[in-house]
Computed example of a mutant assay.
Amino acid sequence: MDNIVVRTRRLTKRFGRRTALDDLDLDVPAGVVLGYLGPNGAGKTTTIRLLAGLIRPTSGSAMVFGFDAADQYDALQRRIGYLPGDFVAYPGLTGAQYLTYFAHLYGGVPTERIDLLAKRFDLDLGVRIGALSRGNRQKVGIVQAFMHDPDLLILDEPTTGLDPIMQREFRELLRETRDAGRTVFLSSHVLSEVEAVADTVAILRAGRLVTVQSVQDLKDRARRRLDLTFADVPPLERIRCVPGVRELTVDGRVAHLSITGSTATLIKAVAPYDVTNVVSHETDLEAAFLDYYSSEG
């Protein structure tokens, strides 16, 4: 049985002469959090709007739960929770009024479910949305996206304006959503957030998909920084000969370097030279992401 929730084939969107998304082929299986990464203008929001059925592709297809996102929006509406990056709501309504309106669109949502989410994010539903801070308005959007327990969450910069405590709470909600077997398509510039919750990342550049990897594989691919302390003068020429070694400098008996790929060859090469200490600086997703872009030109 096909467990692919999102499947795009040669998905392309042009705005006039500008190509915002170019031949995107991407499969997102059920029960995962996919982090969708790229710099501004890479095509992330365009992809999200196509998946949400808000715009039509120039060519290609975007299938969600087997339905065409562009032509069968009504069949998908109750199965998708969507939070745009520029979330706005009716400023004259209270949070409760706004969410009740959307609850009807979703075919009914228990009041207890809305209240539970609001309490979890410390959101006062009795205040007019126009009087809320940016962070609290974002909380309204989060509750709106999650309150009907959709099978797919499509989230564009969801933690904009949230304080660190609420960001942590949101990450926990994402983990619970994945553990319940639902799928999350998450675009975020907060790479620590993506690293904390994503199973897989897809990276865009200039409208084209350049890689899909697990978070760990992407980190393993990135350069690691090492400090090697020797009992005597570091064997620089021996270290330089090791594949993947970059940015080698020396401070007394300590060799500072970065290396891509496995460190096993390096450790084997320097073992005869009386290494007294090895310090490895853990690679995070941000470093891996930036290194991927720089190494790919």
Rank of each mutant, 00 (worst) to 15 (best):
D2I: 00
I4R: 07
I4C: 12
R7M: 06
R9S: 15
L11W: 04
T12L: 02
R14L: 01
F15V: 02
R18Q: 04
L24K: 00
L26E: 11
P29Y: 01
L34I: 10
L34G: 05
G35V: 05
G38D: 01
G41S: 05
L51V: 04
L51T: 05
L54R: 04
I55A: 01
R56H: 10
S61L: 06
A62G: 00
M63I: 13
A69V: 04
Q72V: 07
A75W: 08
L76F: 07
R78Y: 08
R79M: 09
G81I: 06
L83C: 10
G85R: 10
D86H: 07
F87R: 03
V88M: 13
G92V: 15
Q97S: 03
Y98I: 09
L99C: 00
Y101S: 00
H104N: 14
G107M: 03
G107A: 03
V109Q: 03
P110A: 14
P110D: 14
A118M: 12
K119M: 11
K119W: 10
F121R: 04
L125E: 10
L125D: 11
G126T: 15
R128F: 11
R128H: 15
G130E: 11
A131F: 13
L132S: 10
G141P: 03
G141V: 02
I142S: 08
V143G: 03
Q144I: 00
Q144R: 15
M147L: 04
P150V: 08
L152A: 09
L153D: 03
D156K: 06
T160N: 13
T160H: 07
L162G: 08
D163P: 06
P164G: 01
M166V: 12
R168L: 09
R168Q: 14
E169I: 10
E169A: 11
E172D: 12
E172Q: 13
L174G: 09
L174T: 04
R175S: 11
E176D: 14
T177K: 09
G181C: 09
G181P: 06
F185K: 08
S188F: 06
E193A: 09
E195G: 05
A196V: 07
V197E: 11
D199F: 01
A202P: 15
I203G: 02
R205P: 04
R205F: 07
R205A: 12
A206I: 01
G207V: 02
V210G: 07
V212Y: 06
Q213D: 15
S214G: 15
S214Y: 08
Q216W: 10
D217T: 13
D217F: 03
L218D: 01
D220T: 01
R221H: 12
A222V: 05
R224A: 13
R225L: 05
D227H: 14
L228I: 14
T229R: 14
F230A: 11
P235L: 04
P235I: 00
E237R: 11
R238Y: 09
R238G: 07
I239P: 03
I239Q: 01
R240C: 08
R240H: 09
V242T: 02
G244V: 06
R246M: 11
V250D: 09
V254Y: 07
A255I: 07
L257S: 08
S262D: 14
T263A: 13
T263E: 13
L266W: 08
L266C: 06
P272Q: 04
Y273H: 15
V275K: 02
V279K: 09
S280A: 12
H281F: 10
A287H: 12
S294D: 13
E296R: 15
G297C: 08
G297R: 13
